[in-house]
Design a protein around this nucleic acid. Structure first.
Lengths: 213, 213, 213, 213
DNA sequence: AATGAATGAGCCTTCATTCAT
DNA sequence: GATGAATGAAGGCTCATTCAT
């Protein structure tokens, strides 16, 4: 967009590196080297390593926002179907991190290990997704159920999904390889999480029962 | 156990520091200073910083194992009650991290950001907890439900709990302060997670209904 | 004088900064920033930082020369009165450095820590003041006193004045605060230096006697 | 004295460099290079560049203190003689700075451009000399003369001496070379300053008269 | 068995300067 | 005439490690 070449090259180089290593472990040297830029370029264009990090996160954000958390449904689509879509999208983002998909990894880092400099950006992003999920839940719960309960229901659903990522290293320790490949791909997990949650919401039979799938 | 005083002092000092800052951010300097030991002590006794880390994790392990995930119940205790106990213990460990309780924090770090050198220790620990939870679930599900389903049920329960820790920085962004202090202390969360899960398991009414609590 | 706006803006900005911090500590960045000019402006217009410094000193000079060291006295004014005036003016310039009076500060810096590039300017300035003082002394000394003696008398007088500036940081170490505020403002110091010097010149009683002041 | 070789080598190398260039312009690199030490040695032994500077000043101090400002006089030595000795010593220190005599240059730097870190050391040093001079003056002044006057007399004497150093670069501008070599060596200057001051104190005829010297 | 001393690699940042426009 | 962009050199400092004792 801008004609500023070096600045953009640095920005593009910084993203994957910050995403892969985090703020501390990433070095300005490596970023500049990968960008083919001079070592002083970071300070010239961004003032400091922190400035570059903030710019990188800001840079990562807008392109992400375009991907909504919920597709446009025709009115009348049942909540169960919409919940399945939400869970499917969330899980696919969490688990199918392509090598080039560093923006999302950067956000995940911020969630676990937040940096003061991009709190607001994180907040905006997180609220969007949370709001979308609440919209689905609101259609299901009885009128008298207080907001605090609805919030926790949402967190219970999100938590199930995020766990498959945050504990990715640990799940193979309790599940054998065969089972892993059969039941832990995105679609299978989305099915399970949706099913478990729908059961809790009273929109499906208990998870403990055998089903026809 | 050993008569090597310095070695043990370093080990004791390293635990909390690694737990608090992680491998990279922790410095040999600080550890040795806190241990009242010489800066060269780490390399002398453990070969390298990595060697110290591995030893620290091994050192952390045994004392942890003593704390079981489930108390000894009298036979016949209903699964719902046992599940509530399991969730309560897990959540209290996740959320109520006392300053002295660095061993557990070290394990949590390994889950999110695993280090190759202590995979086996992590595995042993994780399997113990997972097994305990499976023992409870097995009493509830119908006989025909396959193990893969039972595993995922367990992960759904654990995931809900872990999320309150891994997303600790992000939850205040969507929940106001008042609600936070009223509904997000350990006991309230344990009640919710148990209730949500029991509903999914068919052992409680849907979570969407108003209850008497 | 020139129609080159940027050049003059840089020159005006450089003066106070060089005066306040000296050549080394002053940065091209700050100067250009304060001048609202581009960072490259210094090198474009002056070739280098040194070139700017030389130009700044040259720029500082002419406006200074207007301020004479001795006011115009009516012929017949006694030397004692003229000496008091000289000392008063010198001390006030040394001690009462207004923020805007950076030219003088720049000269003072050159005296203590001379830069090769502006030797001539310094020389011209210094000779003017020295000559004025010699004019007063010449009226007092006996005819046979050689010039070398007259020069040293002048230096003894100037030296007393300059010391209050060059040792400004160290005088409070040997003189308490109360005495400082009572006897170390410009007028009181001018009185003392004049009195001491007049006594040495035989135009006043010895400084050791109690006087009526 | 200590067996710590590198530390002392750095200290010895730092002294002359700090004295010659000042704190800012001196570089840790040059110091370590000259000391034949590793670049990190400064931080290991002194914590920081500032720490090294403070240590250097402290290191410079004790050896200096041994050189008293006034030699031991037999009781009854007239004040004029003692004043001459004081002025002679002060001037010789100010003017005859051998290349190896960096300690005194370092102190002079502190006087003109004080560093917060060694204020107390400077104070101690300065008070010693000032006290010695006051001791001489006290014998001369009338009893009723207040301390403030005595202090200023002392400063007038010291000021004359210091000026020959602080204005060393500027004096050749008003005094020709021949006169310089004849009347501006240490002894001649000491004679003049003493004579000028004694005249002011009423212990010698006015400076304006031709004398027999 | 243990340590004080010393090291080399690497960190981020700042500087005056140069280049292409 | 003037500037935004970019650069190379150098700055102080921190780190894990090694060496000699």
């Amino acid at each position: 967009m801008s004609s500023n070449h070096t600045r953009n090259r640095i920005l593009d180089a910084a993203g994957p590196i910050f995403a892969a290593k985090g703020f501390d472990a990433a070095t300005v040297r490596e970023i500049c080297h990968r960008a083919g830029a001079n070592l002083a370029g970071v300070n010239y264009h961004f003032g400091s390593k922190e400035g570059l990090y903030a710019a990188t996160v800001r840079h990562a954000h807008p392109s992400r926002l375009e991907q909504r958390f919920v597709p446009e449904f025709t009115p009348g689509t049942p909540p169960a179907e919409r919940l399945r879509a939400f869970v499917g999208i969330l899980l696919s983002r969490l688990l199918e991190l392509k090598t080039t998909d560093w923006q999302w990894r950067l956000l995940l880092r911020e969630i676990t290990d937040p940096t003061p400099m991009c709190r607001e950006m994180l907040q905006e992003h997180f609220r969007a997704g949370f709001g979308a999920l609440l919209g689905i839940i609101d259609e299901v719960v009885e009128p008298g159920v207080p907001p605090s309960r609805r919030h926790q229901i949402a967190l219970s659903i999100v938590g199930q999904c995020v766990y498959y990522r945050s504990a990715a290293s640990v799940i193979p320790m309790v599940v054998d390889e065969e089972e892993l490949s059969a039941h832990y791909h995105t679609e299978a997990l989305a099915d399970h999480v949706t099913r478990f949650s729908l059961a809790a919401l009273g929109l499906a039979p208990p998870i403990t029962t055998q089903d026809h799938r």
